[in-house]
Design a protein around this nucleic acid. Structure first.
Lengths: 136, 136
DNA sequence: CAGCATCCGTTTTGATACTG
DNA sequence: CAGTATCAAAACGGATGCTG
């Protein structure tokens, strides 16, 4: 066998000192905020609480299913709160918790880097793709 | 119809002032670093260049396929460089580019938040799940 | 040593219609 | 208003065998 089998790789990983991705806090966080709509939802809630329909109109190309799923997961993680006001019609408001608020500066740092550098990344991609095409 | 159709949602999104996720730099960045092995690979390259086999041993539960795919995508994005030294056997070294280096402080901020707060998130999840179970 | 090719199951995302 | 249910498509991740 030329490469290690999955069983071997995992056995080696269990032998500590090696990195186990499942236990890495950074990976766990990125699993959530790397989801398609998560960062966008958090950003929309950064300044003020928002109602469901309000979010749905702003994040217009998320289907209701995806929006709800994203909101529920963030609520489960303790990053936002969901408040139902029983009235007719019902009013559901989403707001960042203190934990969610504490994440925002980090997210803003990420956004800042992205806005400053996405142009470089796109340029690199074009260069790379052009090189690939000419060598094929 | 009670919800907007996909066509309507997208038409509204085209009418500007609304958010289009595909054009959001933050989303584009998270698409990449949210991939399963990306952050880990960047972290391993943060201090010094590394050879392929070296990375494979450290990130032991990534298959060769996933490791290669991750490295190639990061190379394409201009975040790391791949240097082949023609020898027997060949030697391939990966290193962060200046662009990749510039991302590291942001990534470290993210890791810092994750390490400080992942416990709160996990606790929130247990509380939420317990509440769900008791109300079903 | 450093991969690539192929096949395949799982997860994620989405379109659409319907409801308390 | 604020969702849920169902069905389907696509992306992602992984197992395994082979190669320059």
């Amino acid at each position: 066998m030329t490469t290690r089998s999955a069983a071997q790789r995992q056995a080696e990983a269990r032998d500590s000192h090696l990195i186990r991705v499942a236990e890495c806090p950074t990976h766990r966080l990125l699993e959530r905020i790397g989801e398609k709509w998560t960062a966008l939802v958090l950003k929309e809630l950064a300044d003020r609480p928002r109602r469901y329909g309000d979010l749905a109109r702003t994040i217009a190309d998320a289907s209701p299913k995806m929006l709800t799923q994203t909101l529920r997961r963030l609520e489960r993680d303790g990053l936002l709160s969901r408040t139902v006001t029983p009235a007719v019609p019902v009013r559901v408001e989403y707001a960042l918790t203190p934990l969610g608020q504490s994440l925002m500066p980090v997210l803003r740092a990420l956004s800042g880097w992205a806005e400053r550098n996405i142009g470089h990344v796109e340029a690199a991609r074009e260069t790379y793709d052009a090189a690939q095409r000419s060598s094929s």
